[in-house]
Amino acid sequence: MDTESGKDRKFVEALARGLNILRVFGDGPVMMGNQELARLTGLPKPTVSRMTYTLTRLGYLNQHPDTDKYQLGSEVLSLGYTYVANLRVRQLAKPYMDEFAREYGMSVGLTCRDRMHMIYVENRMPPVKALLRVDLGLRLPLATTSAGRAFIAGHSAKGREQLQDELAAYYGAEKWQEKQPGLLDALAMYDREGFCLSLGEWDRNIVSAGVPIGLQDGTQMALTCAAPAYEIGVERLKHTIAPRLAGLAGDIQALGA
């Protein structure tokens, strides 16, 4: 660290700004202009204009000729698919996830963290029954879903505290006060039972269970199963399905992913 400026000399500020502009499209409208991007990122409009011009030239953004607004380009998609395709755990886990989905009639997903969200990088569905359609790339809130709670639960006490501090800053005091108790209950459940639940807290119609998965390269992920509440009773989820999901996570980790 640079002790005088408090900044990391190796940190490339311009690159970080460009990536932050791309990230804004994950939470905002599909198409945005420079003024809106400047407002959402807190960057000066001239800086945003240079960034969007460069990102457009590189194919990471496309500019609509009539409105001059931008949307994500194909190069962003290629980066995402390259990452997903190279995840060895996906290939190893698929047959096990398929078997679980068939046996319990639930969707089974692998998720990884993206800031204050979890993203599906794999999802397997039970045959015939399309109970809960989940597309790859779907983002789930970290604090209120079983995937996010399981991800946090897989960390040390210090890591859990740090993630909660990040969530508190993200939500603000009032909203965090509403969300933290459910997260703390889920972490306590993981310490007792080996899994986390989310019972309608993200979507009131959905119940789900989640467990952390640690890969050999140090990557932390979460395995989750979900279904409409009317299909899966809470007691069955808690006493039968969630413990089996924890066993599935152990099986996948044993494969050496």
Rank of each mutant, 00 (worst) to 15 (best):
A188V: 09
G200T: 10
H64M: 00
T67C: 01
L131G: 04
K94E: 15
K7Q: 11
H155W: 06
G59L: 11
C112R: 12
C196Q: 02
Q35R: 15
M97W: 08
L245Y: 07
Q63I: 00
N86G: 11
E178Q: 15
G18R: 14
L248N: 02
G250K: 14
G26P: 01
T224H: 02
E122T: 07
T82M: 07
H155V: 01
A38N: 10
G80E: 06
R113A: 15
R124W: 05
G109D: 00
A93W: 07
T224D: 00
T111L: 08
R204H: 15
I252W: 08
P141Y: 09
P95V: 10
T145F: 05
R90P: 02
R244E: 13
L61Y: 00
T240I: 11
E174R: 15
Q35T: 12
V24L: 08
R124N: 12
A14Y: 10
R57M: 11
Q71S: 12
P65G: 00
G159P: 13
R90F: 05
Q91S: 15
R204K: 14
A209C: 05
P44Q: 12
Y190M: 06
S146C: 06
T82P: 00
D114Q: 07
V12W: 03
G137T: 09
L142T: 07
L140T: 06
R50T: 09
A14S: 15
G73K: 09
T240H: 11
L72P: 10
R124V: 13
L55W: 02
K158H: 13
L199H: 08
A16I: 00
V121L: 03
A257Y: 06
L131D: 01
P228V: 02
S107Y: 00
R192W: 02
M51C: 07
I152P: 06
R139M: 09
A157P: 03
R160T: 09
D165F: 05
L223H: 00
P29Q: 06
A93C: 13
R57D: 05
P95H: 13
E99C: 08
R102S: 15
L22M: 10
A254F: 04
V211W: 01
